[in-house]
Design a protein around this nucleic acid. Structure first.
Lengths: 217, 217
DNA sequence: TAATCATTCCAGCAATCATTAGATTGTTAT
DNA sequence: ATAACAATCTAATGATTGCTGGAATGATTA
């Protein structure tokens, strides 16, 4: 077994291909976006604030590692994650990052709002309250993403429409807003707006991907 | 919120620091080794077949991302994983790699032995059989690693001593050998030796880290 | 105190990566 | 057809990274 070394090198090299995909900030952002549902290259480029060329290049890397699939629809090519496990791995990585990197913790604290304490931090009791109608769970992502999946009992008001649709929300119950995940700032903005308008509101760090990864083991 | 972009970039960049650590084959190998228990730089360099300088450089990356801790013991500096979640993430990454990369699947198939069917592939029934003494679970890693943790009911015979200690093993029961994980070839070698000597033997892909990651969810 | 050993730090090279611009492919609409 | 558009491919840039050799550090032993 003198070539055991060579075999091992090959194996680790393959795994490193996957790791490499998760080593670029923009690719991580694209993965998170794709975790919300399939999207065109243009939509991805716009959401991630990068050129379409660069988006295409990054998606190429993702496809090279077989982590995304493509489908042509007319002029557009839509991308989707090849496996839910890709989204799960994203959640695992950013969770570990939040646990270990003080720098990241500090960044996150800056955008965190004061807790308000009107909302429990564990998923189960929050869902219990939502089921009883004691809180309103509000999904502020674009409607398409809400339609793909959303948290149980969640209502959809995209952040862009929130200001005009405030009347739909109750003033007496706490409104818990969430969006794509801890690095998506839409829910933070929503809470800021709601509080300014006199609503009781709190912000849920986790998005659909985080809940799924936590629930399904 | 025009600087939302800047904040996001910072956040994803931090997470990418963690991803970067997992993007190098040698670092992955070091992480897997550290998952078996704390080790000196020298031991790591030897096991991974790289120079101590390079080992040190990689460990520096790992420490920079706060994924390992160091402790001085006399002349030596020993490294250990800062968190079990690091080992879990390694398991998640290589699992995803095995699911998605055909190239890796093919490599793994080359080293896989014929299944023999004397051993169930799900963890639970294997443990049941081990509890009843119907199979012998054999840990062929170095003794130090066995002492840190091992699978329930497992006996320890390091691969180097196996040839001389064959008499300790029964000829009538199947012997299920395992080692550090799917990329560690010690168990494969052990099974090859055992079969040649007339034992019934099979090889368990997963190591301790994989079992832990699967159980604790 | 000097000598020794394990490990890290520093400087450099070649290889790789992110990013951009320009040319190209494939699809729809006229 | 041809024009207009979405997306990719190619080539070229500067910035990292992996790795190696030599010098420096820091604890232990003599």
């Amino acid at each position: 077994m003198k070539d055991a070394r060579k075999i091992k090198d090959l194996l680790y090299e393959q795994v490193a291909r996957i790791g490499k995909v998760f080593s670029s900030p923009k690719r991580l952002e694209l993965i998170e976006l794709l975790g919300q549902g399939e999207k065109t290259v243009e939509a991805l480029a716009h959401e991630a604030s990068i050129s379409m060329k660069l988006t295409s290049a990054h998606l190429r890397e993702l496809r090279g590692a077989h982590l995304v699939e493509t489908e042509r629809q007319g002029k557009n090519i839509i991308y989707r994650l090849a496996d839910k496990a890709v989204s799960d791995l994203w959640v695992h990585i950013h969770t570990l990052a939040e646990d270990r990197l003080i720098e990241l913790q500090m960044e996150l604290q800056k955008i965190a709002m004061q807790p308000e304490d009107l909302v429990p931090n564990d998923r189960e009791t929050l869902m219990k309250m939502a089921r009883r109608g004691e809180v309103v769970v509000l999904d502020v992502r674009p409607t398409e993403e809400y339609l793909v999946t959303h948290l149980p009992f969640a209502r959809s008001i995209p952040i862009d429409e929130l200001r005009q649709r405030l009347a739909e929300l109750p003033k007496d119950k706490p409104i818990v807003a969430y969006c794509r995940g801890p690095y998506c700032l839409m829910a933070v903005d929503a809470v800021a707006l709601l509080r300014k308008e006199g609503f009781k509101s709190a912000h849920l760090r986790d998005g659909v991907a985080e809940w799924r990864a936590a629930e399904i083991r």
